[in-house]
Amino acid sequence: MSTLTIERLTVGYGDGAPVLDGLDLTVPDGDVVALLGANGAGKTTLLRALLGLTSARGGRVLLDGADLTGLPTEDRVRRGLALVPEGRGVVAELTVAENLRLGALWRYAGRKHARAERDAAVGQMYELFEPLARRRDAPGHTLSGGERQMLALARALVTRPRVLLLDEPSLGLAPLVVAQLLGVLRDQARSTGLTVLLAEQNVTGALSVADRGVVLSLGEVVADRPAADLAADPALRHAYLGF
């Protein structure tokens, strides 16, 4: 599908020292990359900067060689980036069905059979996430944490993104729900060749679905290894992940 390239990205808040200082990272086509690191390492800042929600002080973001720098968030989304932010990125005042329809609107706009294609894409999401099908007319704010995270992932997938970015999807969820969500993610990546950058505190879960693990510390990449190596090597784990 697509390659995401980050070149010398520098991001900071206010006048303070930059959170990310000249970060270089490539997420190759079809790879699932786990972005690991302690609180404050810069994971969320990186994902927000990739979508343009936090403005970068310098550096470039490229999607398949096309420069996204300077584009507003909604145009980066339309180019094929999708972000599921921390804290369940759904519009809580809208229903499940409305959230999914909204996500799919721009994707199928202007096509000959726009509505049919959109309904088919939304239908696929209901097949993927059965609990959402049962609650399609429920407003977002009445969903449980797990259902909301499913909806956030579904509304991202319904746009058929080229690169999917996820910020701590397992936060505050029961292990069973986390396993289910990560399973869907892995299956989607395998079947559609979707490129995924997954920021997680849940190291074991993230490495179990990832091809590669990248460890971020104070805004710099301190380790970049195959996920299996990172998970299996106690010395690496201890040095970079603290367990």
């Binding site: 929600l53 968030t73 909604e74 989304v77 959230n99 909204l102 509304r155 746009t159």
Partner: peptide
Amino acid sequence: ETSRLLGVR
């Protein structure tokens, strides 16, 4: 913000 992530201008 969430709407922008959903591609809404």
